[in-house]
């Protein structure tokens, strides 16, 4: 693939570093916001739901925190990547290189924050008495899965956004629905069997939260078949999204 040329990998690195430097640059707390946001939400959701929905869930605060960090990362990263072609319009319209690098660079810049936020999460878990065991070492795999998910969603969104600017509002509404359709503040078993469980099963984020919580809170491994299936489906979708992006890329310059 063209994007794996050495010069494009160098460009990808440069774009990711630039996006990372620019993120939150005008804010006082900068990177800390990637963790403060989930903490604020944690305070709110914990005070609202710990008595009812948190019943029967060990370390409910950490359970919530893991969910919020991963959901927040997915939400903000896909949202930022959706706008990147327009935000870097001069590059999209005037420079000659595979434009998926702009989207991937943006996703990588956000991915660094996910890793840092999850490390803080682990530290808080340890301090609050969660016994971390060997399976926690498999967490980087979950991060990789989340990156794959963010990448294919971002490639589809950024491509579509060039043509349909209403997507910003549609996606905002979708993310609000996703907040409730993902077991962030409730356990999957809370939902009745039937359509709601199918929604959870189809929602890739709910699988990712399940993986992380199993590794951190329960100290269990993740069923291998579930992991392989998740990776295979997301990898296939990533491949499909790159093909889609490539198909429409030659028209980007005309519409920006």
């Amino acid at each position: 693939m063209k994007m794996f040329d050495k010069k494009y990998l160098t460009l990808l690195r440069e774009l990711a570093v630039t996006r990372y430097k620019l993120k939150d640059q005008s804010t006082i707390l900068g990177f800390a916001w990637s963790f403060l946001n989930p903490l604020i939400m944690l305070g709110l959701l914990f005070s609202l739901f710990s008595a009812r929905l948190g019943k029967g869930i060990d370390h409910y605060a950490i359970y919530l925190l893991i969910g919020l960090v991963q959901y927040n990362h997915f939400s903000s990263s896909t949202n930022r990547s959706m706008h990147v072609l327009l935000a870097m319009k001069s590059l999209t319209a005037d420079a000659i290189f595979p434009k998926e690098l702009l989207v991937i660079g943006s996703a990588i810049a956000d991915f660094v924050e996910l890793i840092a936020a999850m490390l803080v999460c682990l530290m808080i878990a340890k301090l609050s008495g969660v016994e971390l065991s060997l399976p926690v070492l498999a967490l980087p795999l979950v991060f990789l899965f989340q990156l794959t998910l963010v990448l294919w969603v971002s490639l589809c969104l950024s491509c579509l956004y060039v043509f349909v600017r209403d997507l910003t509002y549609i996606y905002q509404a979708f993310m609000r629905l996703l907040l409730f359709a993902t077991p962030i503040f409730y356990a999957p078993s809370f939902l009745e069997k039937g359509p709601a469980q199918y929604v959870l099963w189809l929602n890739p984020l709910s699988h990712l939260l399940d993986f992380s919580r199993s590794l951190i809170l329960k100290g269990d491994g993740v069923p291998l078949t579930q992991m392989i299936l998740f990776f295979a489906v997301n990898f296939a979708l990533l491949y499909g999204s790159i093909r889609l992006f490539r198909k429409y890329e030659p028209t980007f310059a005309e519409y920006l």
């Binding site: 630039t18 430097k21 620019l22 001069s90 590059l91 005037d94 420079a95 000659i96």
Partner: peptide
């Protein structure tokens, strides 16, 4: 190679 405008892709904040 296409060069348009002054410093395509340059970022004010860097």
């Amino acid at each position: 190679l296409l060069l348009r405008g002054v410093g395509t892709g340059m970022v004010d904040e860097l």
